[in-house]
Simulated assay, not measured.
Amino acid sequence: MTPEPDTPAVEETDARHAAKMAKKKVARDKIMATKSGEKGLIIVHTGAGKGKSSSAFGMIVRCVAHGLPCAVVQFIKGAWDTGERRLLTGHFGDLCQFHAMGEGFTWETQDRARDIAAARAGWEKAKELISDERLRMVVLDEINIALRYDYLDIAEVVDFLQTQKPPLTHVVLTGRNAKDELIEIADLVTEMTLVKHPFRSGIKAQAGVEF
C-alpha cells in the first residue's frame, strides 16, 4: 500500500517553487521590457553536427505560417529531391521562392570550374532576392561550403550583407566551417556539435531525416 504523501512538506516545496518562479518572472519581465527593437538579422548555422539546414527550413516554415514572403537558394543540394523542396514548391510557392542552384557536393562533380560557376549563379540569385525588400527572410543553404572552397569571395559576401541588405530582411547562411569574417558580422551564430551520427554505424541518409 502506497503511503500518504507528507502534505505539509509537499506544500512547502510547492510554495518555495512558486516563490522562485515569481522572482524569475520579475527578472525576466524586466529584461524583456528593454527589448523593443526589430532588425533584419544575419544568422549563421555551422558546425559538424546535423541540423543546420533543418533549423533554417524551420524558420522558413515559420515565415510561411505567418504569411511572410521568403526565399531559399540551395548552393549544394540542387540535385537532391528533398522533402523541404517538395513541400515549399508544391504547396507554398506563392509565399516562398525556391532556387536549387547547386549540382551536388564538390566530390560528386569533380569539376572546380563548374562548381565555381554554379556558386556564382547562386550568389547572383541570392543578391537579387536579398535586395527585394518584400522578402522577409532569405536562406542561403550550404553557402558556407562554397565559401570554404573559395568558390565565392568572402569579402564580397560580407560587404554585400553589411551594405546592401535591407534593414528588416533576415538572411540565414548554413554549412560547416563558416568563415571567421562571416561569424564576425553575424547577429546570431549557432554551432551544431556532433555527438553521434548513424552514418558512422553504416546507416545511409534517409528520407525525412536527411532530406
Score class of each variant (00 low, 15 high):
F98E: 13
V10P: 08
D6V: 00
K125V: 14
S201E: 15
I60S: 09
G175Y: 02
D81H: 01
T46M: 06
R16M: 14
E133A: 09
Q164M: 07
T89N: 12
Q164Y: 00
S131Q: 10
H99G: 05
M192A: 06
I145M: 12
F105P: 15
S55C: 12
V157I: 03
D111Y: 03
E12L: 08
K204N: 14
R62I: 07
S201T: 12
E191Q: 14
A27M: 04
H45Q: 14
G175Q: 08
V61Y: 14
W107N: 14
F211M: 06
Q206V: 01
T174V: 05
T13K: 13
K30C: 08
N177S: 08
E12Q: 07
F160A: 04
G122F: 01
I116W: 05
Q97F: 04
E128P: 11
T193N: 14
R114P: 13
Y151Q: 11
E11T: 04
E11R: 09
S53F: 00
P198Q: 06
L68R: 15
K20F: 01
S201K: 15
R62N: 13
E103T: 01
I154A: 13
A178W: 04
K24C: 01
K77P: 07
S55Q: 08
A18T: 05
M137V: 13
E142M: 02
A27E: 07
A118C: 11
H91N: 14
G37Q: 13
D6C: 03
C96D: 10
V138R: 09
E84M: 01
A65C: 14
I31L: 15
I183W: 05
L168I: 03
V61G: 15
D187Q: 02
S53C: 01
A178H: 04
L87W: 10
G93C: 08
C70W: 03
G93H: 08
E84Q: 06
T2H: 10
E142A: 02
S36H: 06
S201Y: 14
I145Q: 11
K39H: 12
A126T: 09
A18G: 00
R62G: 12
T163H: 05
T89W: 08
V64D: 12
T163Q: 09
V172E: 10
F105K: 12
A118K: 07
I185P: 08
G51D: 11
M21W: 08
V157F: 01
N144L: 04
V64S: 11
G49P: 14
A119I: 06
H66A: 12
Q74H: 07
I154E: 15
A79M: 06
K30Y: 07
D132G: 01
D81I: 00
G104I: 03
D29H: 00
R28L: 12
Y149L: 13
A146Y: 01
T174E: 12
I130V: 11
I143L: 15
D29G: 00
V73Q: 10
A79W: 00
